[in-house]
Design a protein around this nucleic acid. Structure first.
Lengths: 344, 344
DNA sequence: CCGCAATCTGCATTCGATTGCATTATTCTT
DNA sequence: AAGAATAATGCAATCGAATGCAGATTGCGG
C-alpha cells in the first residue's frame, strides 16, 4: 500500500470531480450534492485521503492549535489540568501544543515568539507571567490569551482562577474555630496572584475572627522552599499549632518536615490546611484538609472563553473565579460545631 | 503598532530585495550576501517579521511537530517525561503536540489520524499500544514512531524503555536477601511490556535465589486496582512479609492500605519495593525503596533516535533499554551484607 | 584587464488546501 | 410547463514561504 501523500487532487481525479468539490465535501459549511459527497467520500476512503490541516490553516488563517505555556509540571495540579484541557479542546477540534517556559523573562519572550511562529489560535498561560508588552503583542496579532490559575491585574487581561480570596477566608474561619494558640502561614511565590489572593483572604478571615498570624515564612510554591520555610517556622520553641500552607504541593513537604524531622504530630500538635486538592492529597499518608480547585470547571470555562474569543474575534477581558469547597480530612479535623457552608 | 500579518513580501519591499532573498535569509543552508542579510534582518526587525512555520511546513514537508500520545497524566512518571521531552525537543527546534488517548482501540485510531492530519514529523507513543496496522500506517507515511516506556515485540518497532527485566531481577535479589517468609507480587496491567518484563525479571531473580512468589494479585497500574489488589493479598492470614509492587503509582495506594486499613507496619511487618522513582517516592510519608527510571537518559535517547530517523528518513528498529539503580529507602531497608551493585 | 568559477539574486512555480465568482443544474412556484 | 430562485460545480486566485533555474554579480588568477 504505497500511498505517499494523497492530495485532494488525487481524490478529485478518482471521483471524477473537481478539486474544489473534494474540498467542499471536507469543509463543513460548504455545500455539495449528496451524489458528489458519496463519490468523494468513497474515493477518499479508498485512497486513504485526509485533508492536510497545515495547508488548510494557511488559507483559513486558523491553525486549530492552542499554545499552552507551563513552567512546571511537577506540581500535580498542572498535569491534571493539561489532561483535561487537552481532552476538552479535542472535542472542539483543537489541539494543544506544549511550551515549557522557565521563569526568565527572556525565555518567556522566546516562547511567545515560537507560539506565534506556529500561528496558534490562542494561548493559555498556566502560572506564567506575561509582561504587558508580550500580552500586547498577542492582542495586536489578534490572538486570545487566557491566564489559567493566575491573574494579572492592571492589564485587564482574561483569566480563569479559583476564588482564592474566598478560599483563604474559609480556611481562616475553619482554623480559627479550632481556637489554636498561634497561627502560621507558609506563603507561596510572592509574585503570584494565587499567593496574594489566598493570603489576603486568609488575613481577612482571621481579622473577622479576631485573630492574626503569629508567624509567616515563604515557601515559594516549591518543595525545597517549603521544607526550609517549615523548618524555620517550627523549630522555634513557640511554634504555631495551626498552619495554612499556600498549596498542597508545599503541604506535602511541610508535613514531612513536621512529622519526620521535628517529630510533631499532625493533627495532634499542629493542624494543617492547604489549597488545591491534588490527587495525592487524599492519600492516607497525608490526608490533607484542603480547599479544592475545581479543575474541571476551570478548564470548562477556559475552553468556553477561548472558543468565544476565537470565533467572535473579540475578547472583552473577563476574570472568572471559581469557588471550591473546603475538603475536611485528617490533617485538620472539623472543629466542634463546624458547618461546612460549601456542602450545605 | 498595527502589524497585522507581516509576510516575507512586506519585508522584501522594505529591504528593497526580492521575496526569495528574504526567504533565504531565514532559511539556514541557503546562501545570501552579507549585505542582503543585513538589510533583510533590519527590515524584519523593524516590521516584527517572523516566518510562518505553517507555510514553511507546507513546502518543506516538515512540520517540526512531534505528536505525543499519552493515556494518563496522573501517574507522575509521564508529566515528568513530558516536561523533559518538550525541553529537549525545543533545543532541536521541534515542538510537542499532546494527544490524549483513552485505551479503546477506536480512540487510538482516531488519535493517529489526527496526528497525521497535522503532518507530525514523528510520533512518540507513551504507554499506548498501537496496533500493527496503525504502526504500519505510520511507516507507510514515512513517519518515525517511537514507543516510550513500552515495547511491542513481534512488530520490530522502535522503543525506549528501562531495563525492566534487570530491574525486576535486582529487586528479587534484594528481597530474597531479607529472607522473608512469603513473597508477594502486585502486578500491573497485564497487556503492558513493562509489567511483563518486570515480572519476568523478578521471577528469574527469585528462582536464582531459590525462592518463589507465594501470592500474586493484579493492580493494573492504577490506584483503585492497587488498593483492591493489596486488600486481597494482605487480608489473608498468611500474607506476604515482602512485596514487589510493579510501579510507584500503585505502591502509594498499597502502602496506604497496609498502614491505614490493615494496620500493618511498613517496613516492620511488610517490606515493600516498587519501580519508577517518581518524585513522591522520596516524600517521607512513603519513602519508597524503588528502582529508578532514568527519565532524562530515556528522553535523551528518544530524541536522538527521533532526530536520526527524521533526518535520514530511515529508521531501522531499535530497542533501547536503560538500566537504573535500586534506590534504597525506608519502605525496605538494605538487608545485612547488601551490596548495591548499581552504586559500586 | 580579461576570463572562468563561484556566489548571489530574482522570477516563477510549488506545496495542498479554501473560496469568490460565474456558470450550470435542480428545485420550487403557481 | 415555464420562469424564478436556489443549489451545486468548476475555474482560478490565494494563503506564505521554499526552491530550481537562469542570469547577474563578484572574486580571483594570470
Amino acid at each position: 500500500m504505497p500511498n505517499d501523500k494523497i492530495t485532494s487532487l488525487d481524490v478529485a481525479k478518482r471521483a471524477g470531480v473537481s478539486q474544489s468539490a473534494v474540498s467542499r465535501v471536507f469543509t463543513k459549511g460548504a455545500s455539495a450534492s449528496q451524489k458528489t459527497i458519496d463519490k468523494v467520500r468513497k474515493a477518499a476512503k479508498e485512497l486513504g485521503y485526509r485533508p492536510n490541516v497545515l495547508a488548510r490553516s494557511l488559507i483559513t488563517g486558523r491553525s486549530r492549535i492552542i499554545g499552552l505555556v507551563v513552567a512546571y509540571l511537577d506540581n500535580y495540579f498542572y498535569p491534571v489540568a493539561l489532561q483535561k484541557l487537552s481532552n476538552a479542546l479535542k472535542e472542539e477540534g483543537y489541539h494543544v501544543m506544549v511550551f515549557m517556559a522557565s521563569d526568565t523573562t527572556k525565555d518567556i519572550e522566546r516562547v511567545v515568539d515560537e507560539m506565534l511562529d506556529y500561528q496558534v489560535d490562542a494561548i493559555v498561560a498556566a502560572s506564567v507571567p506575561l509582561s504587558s508588552d508580550l500580552a500586547g503583542r498577542c492582542r495586536d496579532e489578534g490572538i486570545p490569551l487566557v491566564f489559567f490559575n493566575r491573574s494579572q491585574d492592571g492589564d485587564n487581561l482574561t483569566s480563569v482562577t479559583a476564588d482564592n480570596f474566598a478560599g483563604g477566608r474559609e480556611i481562616a474561619r475553619f482554623l480559627a474555630a479550632h481556637r489554636p494558640e498561634r497561627i502560621g502561614y507558609i506563603a507561596g511565590f510572592e509574585g503570584a496572584s494565587t499567593q496574594r489572593d489566598r493570603e489576603a483572604g486568609f488575613l481577612r478571615g482571621l481579622e473577622e475572627a479576631g485573630r492574626e498570624v503569629s508567624s509567616r515564612t515563604v515557601g515559594n510554591f516549591c518543595s525545597d522552599g517549603a521544607r526550609a520555610a517549615a523548618l524555620a517556622m517550627f523549630s522555634a520553641p513557640q511554634h504555631p499549632d495551626a498552619v495554612f500552607v499556600a498549596n498542597d504541593h508545599m503541604a506535602f513537604a511541610v508535613m514531612d518536615v513536621l512529622r519526620s524531622d521535628l517529630h510533631l504530630s499532625v493533627p495532634g500538635d499542629v493542624i494543617l490546611v492547604s489549597y488545591d486538592d491534588v490527587p495525592p492529597a487524599v492519600w492516607a499518608g497525608y490526608s490533607l484538609t484542603t480547599v479544592r480547585q475545581r479543575t474541571s470547571r476551570m478548564v470548562e470555562e477556559t475552553v468556553r472563553v477561548l472558543m468565544n474569543a476565537i470565533e467572535t474575534g473579540e475578547a472583552p477581558p473577563v476574570n472568572i473565579k471559581i469557588a471550591g469547597p473546603l475538603i475536611v480530612r485528617g490533617s485538620a479535623p472539623a472543629p466542634l460545631g463546624w458547618t461546612n457552608w460549601a456542602q450545605v
